[in-house]
Design a protein around this nucleic acid. Structure first.
Ligand SMILES: NC(=O)c1ccc[n+]([C@@H]2O[C@H](COP(=O)([O-])OP(=O)(O)OC[C@H]3O[C@@H](n4cnc5c(N)ncnc54)[C@H](O)[C@@H]3O)[C@@H](O)[C@H]2O)c1
Ligand SMILES: NC(=O)c1ccc[n+]([C@@H]2O[C@H](COP(=O)([O-])OP(=O)(O)OC[C@H]3O[C@@H](n4cnc5c(N)ncnc54)[C@H](O)[C@@H]3O)[C@@H](O)[C@H]2O)c1
Lengths: 227, 227
DNA sequence: CCGACTTTGTGATTTGGCTCACAAGCTGCG
DNA sequence: CGCAGCTTGTGAGCCAAATCACAAAGTCGG
């Protein structure tokens, strides 16, 4: 067995390769793909693709490329997507509803199995083919149906509370959409998705280029050489 | 003027500090905050906070900490959030609707100003106080109301097409929710948010810990020393 | 005003990941 | 079979970012 330490940065790219390979497999233009082409599809450079794939083992053939089906299988296996991951969403508001009715998750092995809320309006409602249950039922539900992944889609003020419910129920992987930090024991893995942050980063770079353009314009008017 | 090159990693954390500071400012417990406390609130370590803030200038006071209001203002300015950024969403389906009715964006200076779709069902409908318009009107609309940021919330097959509409209309900052690469000219900034990828990364680490637990269990049964 | 204490700001070092460049290895053809 | 042409796999060097560690600069109590 080789060194079983795949760099984090590589893990984060495997799903991108996976998607690109699925697209390739569908359009059946060829049985193999070169690191060059995969790089183009994934939007990274070829050396990075090769290095990333080399952490999984030597699955390519020199002079030919990578067998698409085989590579698909290996990445799927490495990411743990050969099994389904029963997933629960807590907080069935605007975002929770969108997530609950999204087909793309189950296509990738994430079966949304249960929805929870604590408001009497939401509980009992049907969303995306599931009945919304009360948060209090979470623990029993995890015990019964072996839920593995928890998604937080409540307002930020409730995020910590919901995280604690998840931890208490034995869930070890949490995806948090609320713009708030949550504290959990070290054996629980939390990932945060913050959509506002992405916009703010865009804002930073856009402002910067606008500022540069404005400065250049000002210089031009003053007949100074551009910096 | 000091070295105007803020590391990317720092830029990505500024919004996190901003949020933490806003929380602090609301609960008015103190006028200043130490790097230690800010670090705790932001979920990073204190040295990193200090180094990040030092890129903006020396806004702290030794022995005391950082003035919350002043730091808030500086980060806001640095991120370009002293102005509003008129934003458009294309693709008013499940996700687009959730985004359109989300109040958190406008609170942070991202005013959702226009919604577009290309299906006759969606066009004309009212969502979050705005009338959905046809994608063909995008260019005129950008010219009129100076839209700055474009959000793609269409299926992946349409992502490239929508991106080209944005580019054609002169938009320089794009946030892409569709799981697909888009190619744009180098002066356009695209950020991608892929929710499935986050789940897949969780899956990887969960599978890994499960595998380790299973191996340990197997060893125990065989009366071998644990690895 | 002094000395104990707190907290910043930043050089120095370490770490992790990216890129380059090329030998190794495969294919196919004459 | 040998050679030309690809493409992988990976060591080496490079660069950005994380962390460390501490002097500098402030506060506060007496
Ligand atoms: N809607 C978006 O597009 C969007 C975008 C970015 C971030 N977010 C974030 O996602 C989260 C959800 O956003 P939303 O727009 O869906 O909000 P929402 O107000 O529409 O829905 C929140 C839901 O959570 C439920 N809830 C509240 N406290 C709860 C608790 N303790 N236990 C269980 N359920 C609880 C509420 O009953 C409600 O149904 C928020 O944190 C928001 O900041 C949303
Ligand atoms: N819904 C979710 O929770 C979720 C989660 C993760 C990712 N996504 C991604 O976000 C995107 C949108 O998801 P959704 O669930 O809202 O899909 P959806 O099918 O509900 O909505 C897509 C909308 O885009 C419109 N559209 C299609 N082609 C268009 C075009 N060329 N120009 C303008 N409008 C067009 C459609 O008319 C529809 O209204 C998808 O790419 C999806 O993969 C969604």
């Amino acid at each position: 067995m080789r060194s079983r330490a795949i760099p984090e940065a590589t893990v984060a790219r495997l799903p991108i390769y996976l998607r690109a390979l699925l697209d390739l497999a569908e359009t059946q233009r060829a049985l193999t793909v070169s690191s060059e082409e995969l790089a183009r599809l994934a939007g990274v450079n070829a050396a990075k693709v090769r290095k990333d794939l080399s952490y999984l083992g030597s699955y390519g053939t020199r002079g030919v490329g990578y067998d698409i089906e085989y590579l698909l299988y290996q990445i799927t296996r490495e990411l743990g997507l050969t099994q389904d991951w029963p997933t629960a969403i807590v907080g069935i508001g605007n975002l929770g509803r969108a997530l609950a009715s999204y087909k793309g998750f189950s296509e990738r092995g994430f079966r949304i199995d249960a929805l929870f809320d604590n408001s009497s309006e939401a509980v009992g409602e049907e969303v995306g083919g599931l009945i919304v249950r009360h948060l209090d039922e979470l623990k029993d539900c995890v015990a019964e149906s072996g839920l593995c992944i928890g998604i937080i889609a409540t307002p930020p003020t409730s995020a910590q509370e919901v995280a604690e419910h998840f931890v208490d129920a034995g869930i070890k992987s949490i995806l948090n959409f609320a713009p708030a930090m949550v504290n959990v024991p070290p054996d629980v893995n939390v990932r945060k998705v913050d959509l506002s942050i992405e916009l703010q980063i865009l804002s930073f770079y856009q402002q910067r280029t606008q500022a540069i353009a404005a400065a250049r314009e000002a210089n031009r008017r003053l007949n100074l050489p551009s910096a």
